[in-house]
Simulated assay, not measured.
Amino acid sequence: MRPERTVYQLTEAGERRLRDWVRLLLAEPDGNSTLFVPALTFAGVLTPGEVTAALRERRAELERREEAATAVPPELPRILVLEAEYEAARLHAESEWIGRVIDDLTAGTLDWPADPAALADIEALVKED
């Protein structure tokens, strides 16, 4: 007879790997945010300071890429640079949002539990009326 369910526990090595992975994905921009969104989901495994540092790194890279996207010869017809305009606008919007999150982290206004394990109990976090 099989057990009703199997419970797994994260090892210390697994926790280190998770934290490294989340930190890396928060810090390094990807082309379409496919990896950034899951990293945001798991950001709670890091400290607010670690998240702030990673997001500052990401924002600096976004600003560098935005500058590169806008560095097109002015004599080119606009139709040839629409893609670059779009990319610059996308990068700018992400950078601005990240700046607001960094401000909230720095000000201490972003709720952050002392124990990341507390985030696993969603029912306790969401109080029904």
Rank of each mutant, 00 (worst) to 15 (best):
P29S: 02
V7E: 11
E12Q: 11
E50N: 04
E96H: 12
W112N: 00
A43M: 12
T106Q: 12
G49E: 06
E12I: 05
V101P: 02
E66G: 10
A124C: 03
T6F: 14
A71P: 05
V37N: 11
E63A: 06
I98Q: 01
M1Q: 09
A53G: 01
A114R: 12
L105E: 04
D20L: 09
L62P: 00
P113C: 04
E128W: 12
I98N: 02
A114G: 14
R23H: 13
I79L: 14
R58C: 02
D121E: 05
L76M: 13
L62V: 01
V7F: 14
P29D: 02
V81K: 14
R78Y: 08
E87V: 10
T70R: 15
F36W: 09
W97Q: 11
T11F: 09
V7L: 14
T47I: 04
W21A: 10
K127D: 09
E83K: 14
D115E: 11
R19K: 15
T106C: 03
E50K: 02
P3M: 08
R16T: 15
V101S: 01
T52H: 13
D104T: 02
L40I: 06
F36L: 13
V72R: 13
L35M: 11
E15Q: 13
A114V: 07
A60H: 09
L105V: 06
R90W: 11
W21L: 13
I122S: 03
V101R: 00
G99H: 07
P113D: 08
T47D: 04
R59S: 01
R90L: 09
E63V: 10
L24E: 14
R100A: 11
R100W: 03
P73D: 15
A43G: 06
V45P: 04
R58A: 01
G99A: 15
G108D: 05
A107I: 04
E123A: 12
W112L: 01
D115L: 04
V72K: 07
A114C: 06
V45W: 13
A68G: 08
P74Y: 06
I122D: 05
A84S: 15
F42V: 02
R58D: 01
Q9M: 08
V51W: 00
I102H: 04
P3R: 06
R100Y: 03
L82I: 13
E87G: 03
E67N: 10
L25V: 01
L40M: 14
E83P: 04
E85C: 09
E87F: 03
A27H: 03
T34L: 15
N32G: 14
A120S: 08
S33H: 13
L26N: 01
T109E: 05
E75D: 15
T47Q: 05
L105G: 04
R59W: 02
E123K: 08
L91T: 00
Y86F: 14
D121V: 01
R65F: 13
P29K: 00
E128P: 00
I102V: 15
A53E: 08
R23Y: 12
F36Q: 02
R90N: 11
L35N: 10
A88M: 11
L91H: 01
A71T: 07
P73F: 11
A124L: 09
R23N: 07
R16V: 15
V45D: 04
R64E: 11
A117G: 04
I122K: 03
R56V: 01
L82R: 15
H92L: 08
W97T: 12
D111E: 12
V22F: 04
V72A: 07
E61R: 12
T70N: 12
P113L: 07
L76C: 07
V37R: 09
P74R: 04
